[in-house]
Design a binder for these strands. Structure first.
Ligand code: FES
Ligand code: FES
Lengths: 149, 149
DNA sequence: ACATTTTAGGATAAAAAACTCTTAATAGCG
DNA sequence: CGCTATTAAGAGTTTTTTATCCTAAAATGT
């Protein structure tokens, strides 16, 4: 697994929030129910994103969480770095220290190319794009499958 | 981390064994010392590969482990599948069940392309190739770095 | 002021992964 | 045979990840 489960939950939660364009604050409870993620656990995860100023939160009735900036300016890598750190973009595939061109392992060149594509995908994909995909109805962010016609 | 630590150890151990072309059985103790991996832990990991018929083992003096088939016919994915299973080649990047074209998540198409490259790399790379790379001295399979000139 | 809704945060538990230790089994050798 | 080198097996421990629970704090409406 390239992203931790925690990070997967965070991504999906932010996808959900980003897809609610018009609305202001979305309660975490709603997100947790819609995405079938433990409410308490999700709360903890989203606190991290709030502290990282990716989300803003608001307590009390009509409160909830919302994106701190326009969805166009938040990329997937912002979330992945806030939760899992940058190591996936830097690590040796064999788990060796100090991955780099000076001290390559036998898979370094090949792995670097793939890793760069992952980084590129995460850097360039914004939550605005993902929100659009979700709202068009062709893509899922839960385990529910499309009904058969 | 795309491979578990256990799988990283297994890969490096098999790299080491494959690089000892002429020799027959290599003691696990030697591998563990050269690669700086706990002997007992490595023993356990290599037992799995022995049971999977990727390695053969021989007890007693002059015993050790050796490749069960020529290094040309063992690919990296053989090891990765024996240790971690096939899930990395099938899993949704968001951790959703049933990753597939019928029920894509918003990253499915992009992720599938990258995942296929990983699979292709692991499928096509044999231990013979890696052994050659190691023996030419330009690539490392331990944390030791090249000395500065 | 009070009740309600909601996030914040600490404390703890359960599960999985990583690692250690002990004992057995096997083979070769003197 | 009895000693040693070596893998096999499995129980046991530690660490990390994932998940739950409980109480507090903040905001809002009445
Ligand atoms: S050193 Fe192994 S991937 Fe860079
Ligand atoms: S469904 Fe998410 S990657 Fe395939």
């Amino acid at each position: 697994m390239i992203l931790s489960k925690t990070c997967d939950y965070a991504m999906r939660a932010v996808f959900y929030i980003a897809a609610q364009k018009e609305r202001k604050f979305i309660p975490i409870r709603e997100v947790s129910e819609k995405l079938d993620i433990s409410f308490h656990f999700l709360t903890k995860i989203l606190q991290v994103l709030t502290r990282a100023h990716i989300l803003v939160s608001f307590k009390g009735p009509n409160g909830g969480i919302a994106l701190a900036c326009p969805a166009e300016s938040i990329s997937l890598s912002d979330i992945s770095k806030a939760i899992d750190g940058s190591k996936i973009y830097e690590e040796c595939i064999l788990g060796l220290d100090q991955c780099g061109d000076e001290n390559p392992c036998p898979l370094h060149n090949e792995w670097k190319r793939i890793r760069d594509q992952i980084q590129n995908l995460f850097d360039k994909t914004t939550f605005a794009e993902v929100a659009e995909k979700i709202n068009c109805g062709e893509f899922r962010i839960t385990n529910l499958l499309k009904k058969n016609k």
